[in-house]
Amino acid sequence: MLNRSQDFSAANFDDRTVILCDQCEKEYHVGCLRESGLCDLKELPKDKWFCCNECHKIYVALQNFASSGPEAIPASVLAALATKHAERGLSDSYRNDIRWRILNGKSRYPEHLLLLSRAAAIFRERFDPIVAKTGRDLIPVMVYG
């Protein structure tokens, strides 16, 4: 949830208050939500807030993926990788047990932080810098969300 009004305070929660969906990050004025009949908020939600059921379902599904362990890449995908490698004359010495995992960039589990740090390092090594006009490096923003 975010409010961009400079005169906002929790005590002055009103129709001008702007909140963000915790999944899609679309902005909504509380007054517009009230007028459209989508939601009648009386105060800032204490937990997550979603603009619709679909965003809530997506959030729950992603959280379930993030909390599960590494998933094996299906054999059919591994076979396609092997074919591509053979077509390009690359060694077929890659691992046959490639795994994937969705991580939450806000996770504080040490093993997650290590994996996220490795991902950021791979992006920096393999791609040209991604820098915003402000000079901010966007790779950590992308990796850590």
Rank of each mutant, 00 (worst) to 15 (best):
Y28G: 05
G135E: 13
F50C: 07
D15I: 00
S67Y: 15
R4Q: 07
A10G: 02
P45K: 06
Y59H: 12
G135T: 08
Q23R: 08
R108P: 03
K106L: 02
D40T: 04
S5W: 03
A121H: 07
A11Y: 08
C21T: 02
V60I: 04
K42T: 13
R34C: 03
I98Q: 15
N96M: 03
F123Y: 15
Q63N: 14
H29N: 02
L44G: 07
A82T: 08
I139T: 03
Y109S: 12
K48Y: 10
R126Y: 01
L20T: 10
H112Y: 02
V60E: 15
G69P: 05
E27K: 00
A82F: 02
L41V: 03
R126F: 05
I102W: 12
A132S: 07
R136A: 06
D128Q: 05
P140T: 01
E54C: 03
F50M: 09
A119L: 13
A66F: 03
E125P: 00
L44M: 06
A66S: 09
K26I: 02
L113P: 00
I122N: 03
A121Q: 08
N3T: 02
R99G: 07
E25H: 06
L81W: 14
I102V: 12
K46P: 08
K133M: 06
D137W: 01
C32R: 14
N96G: 14
L62P: 05
A11T: 04
M142Q: 11
Y109V: 04
Y94V: 15
R16D: 15
G69C: 04
G105Y: 05
A82C: 03
G105C: 06
D40S: 07
F123Q: 10
L2D: 09
L138C: 08
A61R: 13
I73A: 12
Q6K: 12
I122C: 10
C55F: 08
A86R: 14
S76A: 14
R4K: 11
D47I: 04
D92E: 09
S9R: 14
S67Q: 13
Y59F: 04
A75F: 08
E87M: 11
P129D: 04
K26M: 14
K57Q: 12
L33P: 00
D92G: 15
E27T: 00
Q63Y: 14
A66W: 10
A121P: 04
P45T: 07
D15F: 06
L90N: 15
Q6M: 07
E111Q: 12
K106P: 01
D14M: 01
Q23A: 07
Y109H: 12
L115N: 04
C51K: 05
R88M: 09
L115P: 04
H56L: 14
E25A: 09
L116W: 06
W100C: 13
E25Y: 09
D92H: 15
L116M: 05
I130T: 02
V77R: 09
L81E: 13
Y59V: 12
L90K: 15
G145F: 07
F123W: 10
L62R: 13
D15S: 11
C51P: 03
R118T: 05
L115C: 01
W100G: 14
R136C: 01
D40A: 08
L44Q: 10
V141C: 02
